[in-house]
Amino acid sequence: MASSIIWYLREFVRGEWISRFFTVKTPPLITPPHFRGFPILTGKECTHCLACMMICPTPNAIEVLRTGDVWNPVIYPGHCVRCGMCVEACPEDVLSTGVILETQKAEHTSYTATFHLTIDPVLCKRCGNCAVACPVNKEIDPYLGGTGTAFSDEVIMRISDGEMRVIHPEKCTGCKTCEKTCPNHAIRVARVVEGLQEAGE
């Protein structure tokens, strides 16, 4: 009896036992470097192509803002889901997280995005707001009419013969300004993203 108590007392005063009893036994709380965190800037020059904003699945998670003379993407942690799509979509490797850039380089993968414009003829009231608001249209034909009519055949969309017609959907950059300005939600911009992998050497 007494020897057993003494054995226990000796066991409890061992330094190893005390430290094990009072401290944490699982591995330390560190994040491995290959885990995706919130994307960080690599310092390469952003060309303001907005590919990161276009591919982002969450609202308001990424914005490309200008500070001084340089454009740079800004990530908002309360919104970002850390999917890493912006890192993969960026053609200039401006952003980086985890091992995405290394994997992309090793496996020769890339994304290309095209945009499909659909206009619901029932909802569309032919106001021409979308054609006027479109920043690409504005660049191609600065003299675009306030009602959405244009003389140029090169614009993305214009009103002709009383109908809103999409002429060059391939020029769309996917900014969705038309969607926001449409009073009837008649125009929809669908993003079609293709993942490409080149044949290795």
């Binding site: 969450t58 308001n60 309360g78 919104h79 889901v81």
Partner: peptide, 12 residues
């Protein structure tokens, strides 16, 4: 998580 902060993907 993001939802109590911003609504994340559900805040549309």
């Amino acid at each position: 998580g993001n939802c109590p902060i911003s609504g994340c993907v559900f805040n549309r």
